[in-house]
Each structure stands twice: as structure tokens, then as C-alpha cells.
């Protein structure tokens, strides 16, 4: 027996809105232009659904980047009615407008239509070494961390690398080499992590002419973050760490390793053997 759930009003066309989408094909166009499309809106329909409707029913040449459709992958960040948002999380009816203007993220090169080239975001992210750095031997168990130690950086782990913050950042618009709020927030996330020992390795990048000190604290990054991360706060906290370091030194105390786990030890042995085998080959 199948149970059918009927949601009142779900599936009915509520109204028609106009999508004004910025189009740009580097192979054909010299400059970007706007195209308008009429989209019938049903309850629960997101801006991404609207874009996919256009792609399926009106203009298949429209390009947009998307994947999970539930605000996790961060692929569909774009500027919707003047603000950076995830298209899959933005309900058309909640915008309460008859005209929806869709632009690709700013401060990036454009690949096509609504698809920005996020290389700058990923390169900057990579430059701050966004992983736990340890100088001691490979661990045979987890590094121990208290819940209150995790709280220090917990918020910054929510970043999904959608790139909305870089698009909103006014410094990013002026300074090509600026690290940007995403990379700086992630640098703080790892420096504040009690398991990390990589402060010195990140110092040259962070304490540079285009590093943490170039933030003007406009706060636009925190305003637009779809996951509620506050990169502007991370930047202020990072400045505090760097200032402390430049006068008194900043020392990280490594978190202890927990009780040895046989499975981890065996796993490490297997890994070492595989590395040796691959080196022989």
C-alpha cells in the first residue's frame, strides 16, 4: 500500500516572475549582456530551480554551476537581486519580487554566463595550508581535544568554499593579491586548533603586504556567508594572534596523542609498506 502525502498548494503555479540573467560567452560576446526569461513559479521553487527551468524549457545554452541542491556543496553561489546567495537555498517567493536579477559572483574571472572561475579562491585557500600541521611522528591514535578547545574555531569549520565572501569583499575588488576572507578565516581555523603546530609555516603568507592587515572590516563577507560563518571576526582574531606574535611570540602547545589504537598502527604499517612498494616501482 502506498501512502500519498498531499501538500496544500504544492505544485501549483503561484505566479510568473521575470529572470534577468547576465549572459556572457567568451567565444561569442565582447561584453556581457542581460537576457530576460518568464518563469512560472510554484511553491517551494528556488532560484536554482528557476535557472534549471530556463535551461530545460527556454534556453539550453544558459550555463550555471550546481551540484547538491541543498546548500552543502557551495557550487551555486551567485548574486541574486544584488546579494551573494546560494541559488539552491533562495526561495523565489521569499524574495517577494516580480523581477529576479541573477549575476555571476564578482571579483572572479568569468568562464561563461553564471560560472565564475574560482581558481583565485582555491589558490588562496591552498596558500594558507588549510590542514593540521605537526612536526612529530605520524599519530597512532587521535589527537585529544577538549570540547571547549574545539569551540574556539568551531564556527569556521562550516565554510563550504562557495566563494560568496570573496565576491562581496571590497578589498578583493581593489587588490588582486589579497588573500581574501575565506583563506584568512581558514588560516585562523587551523591556527586556533589545539592539534595544529603550523603557525610559523603560515606566518609569511598571513603577515604579508597582501595578508591579514589589508582587511578594511567592511563586514560584507560575514553579511553574505550562507553558512553563518563570520570571516570578519576570524580576521580580527588573527590580527590579535599576529600582533601578539610580533612582540611576545606566539607558541602553539601541541595536543597530546590519545591511547594507541592497534587498527591505526596496523593501518600505518600497511601505508608504509605501500609507499615502499610504490617507491621500488
Amino acid at each position: 500500500m502506498t501512502v500519498q502525502v498531499i501538500l496544500k498548494g504544492f505544485g501549483e503555479v503561484v505566479k510568473e516572475v521575470t529572470f534577468r540573467v547576465r549572459r556572457y560567452d567568451p567565444e561569442k560576446d565582447n561584453t556581457p549582456k542581460y537576457s530576460e526569461y518568464k518563469v512560472p513559479v510554484k511553491k517551494g521553487m528556488t532560484v536554482l530551480d528557476g535557472i534549471l527551468y530556463i535551461k530545460e524549457h527556454i534556453d539550453p545554452s544558459l550555463s550555471a554551476r550546481y551540484s547538491c541542491r541543498m546548500g552543502i556543496c557551495g557550487s551555486c553561489a551567485m548574486i541574486i537581486n544584488g546579494k551573494e546567495r546560494l541559488a539552491c537555498q533562495t526561495q523565489i517567493l521569499e524574495l517577494n519580487k516580480d523581477l529576479i536579477k541573477v549575476d555571476p559572483l564578482g571579483n572572479y574571472n568569468l568562464i561563461k554566463d553564471l560560472v565564475p572561475d574560482l581558481s583565485k579562491l582555491f589558490n588562496n585557500h591552498k596558500s594558507v595550508k588549510p590542514y593540521i600541521i605537526r612536526n612529530d611522528n605520524p599519530p597512532t591514535a587521535e589527537y585529544l581535544q577538549k570540547p571547549e578547545e574545539r569551540e574556539k574555531y568551531a564556527m569556521f569549520t562550516e565554510c563550504i568554499l562557495c566563494g560568496a565572501c570573496l565576491s562581496a569583499c571590497p578589498t578583493m575588488a581593489a587588490d588582486d593579491l589579497y588573500l581574501g576572507p575565506q583563506a584568512l578565516a581558514q588560516a585562523y581555523r587551523y591556527i586556533a586548533d589545539s592539534r595544529d603546530m603550523g603557525f610559523e609555516e603560515r606566518l609569511n603568507v598571513l603577515d604579508s603586504k597582501h595578508g591579514v592587515w589589508r582587511c578594511h572590516f567592511a563586514g560584507a563577507c560575514s553579511e553574505v556567508c550562507p553558512k553563518g560563518v563570520d570571516p570578519a571576526l576570524a580576521i580580527q582574531l588573527l590580527r590579535g594572534v599576529l600582533m601578539k606574535n610580533s612582540f611576545f611570540g606566539y607558541k602553539q602547545v601541541p595536543a597530546p596523542v590519545g591511547k594507541e589504537r592497534p587498527t591505526v598502527v596496523e593501518g600505518l604499517k600497511v601505508l608504509e609498506e605501500k609507499i615502499k612498494e610504490s617507491e621500488k616501482k
Partner: peptide
């Protein structure tokens, strides 16, 4: 001089 010291000044 590191940028943090310049900014302190």
C-alpha cells in the same frame, strides 16, 4: 619589517 609591526606603528 613584518607588516604586523608596521601596522602596530
Amino acid at each position: 619589517m613584518r607588516e604586523s609591526k608596521i601596522m602596530f606603528l
